[in-house]
Amino acid sequence: MQKIDHHWQRFTLKQKLSRFTVYLFFIVALVLSVRTVEIIPEFFFDAPEQMVDLFSRMWPIDFAFYPISVHDAMIETLNIATLGTLFTLIFSIPLALMNASNIVASPWAHWIARFFLVSSRSVNSLVWALLFVAIFGPGVLAGVLAIAFRSVGFVGKLLSEALEEIDMGSVEALRATGAPWGAVMLKGYWPQVKPAFFSIVLFRWDINVRESAVLGLVGAGGIGVVLNDSMNLFQWQQVAMSLLAIFAVVVAAEVVVVNIRKRLI
């Protein structure tokens, strides 16, 4: 009778070792961070008390402040988010086309496109806003451009992934009829990526509504300016009103986007 002497293992030795390295790496990073980070323990234990103090200063919410300045600033914020999302299409569609390997075959084009997409995503929208405030001065224009430049990476990357996933059959059929490049784009690629395109743009708009609410902290227009002013004046009841308005708009934007996306897909 043959004895079964090897027992089943889920992972090979190499897999185990590499997983173990990743775990070890993270534990070392964590231990180093915890040991060297500058945290004042008194501040940490004091936090709940300070939070209660903050919220007690915020109450009652100053609703009279809404018609004075919150309403107009909120409309401005929504406009910044929407315009920024529309402007981002000008840059992100060409970059997405360049980055999609089934449209442009050259690896150089991919690297150039990827460089722009990654740098757009690596720089935070607040940093973009700082740069544009330095260029165009404080105001809405800086906010719109910050939103637009920040969104390029996101929209471009997801759109190029959607383009790469399409079924090439109809594109080849169109090419076989001798259709020009524009017609292949419009009738071959576009119908297949249309639902993904609208869903990506809506998703980004939802994120942009959140982001444009804070751009004002560095002077780029919208509700953030109002929030920053009331905070500098320690008018916490007005701060609470602005925060409530932001919360309401963000939730409303998300509900709208979720409902439209459900119908699209």
Partner: peptide, 25 residues
């Protein structure tokens, strides 16, 4: 999820002071 990290950071800077702790929270 509903508030941008910067807004949460402002609230934490108020309650735990300037520094890394506010960022971590």
């Amino acid at each position: 999820r509903s508030f941008h990290p910067v807004i949460i950071a402002i609230l934490f800077v108020k309650s735990v002071g300037f520094g890394a702790l506010a960022g971590i929270l």
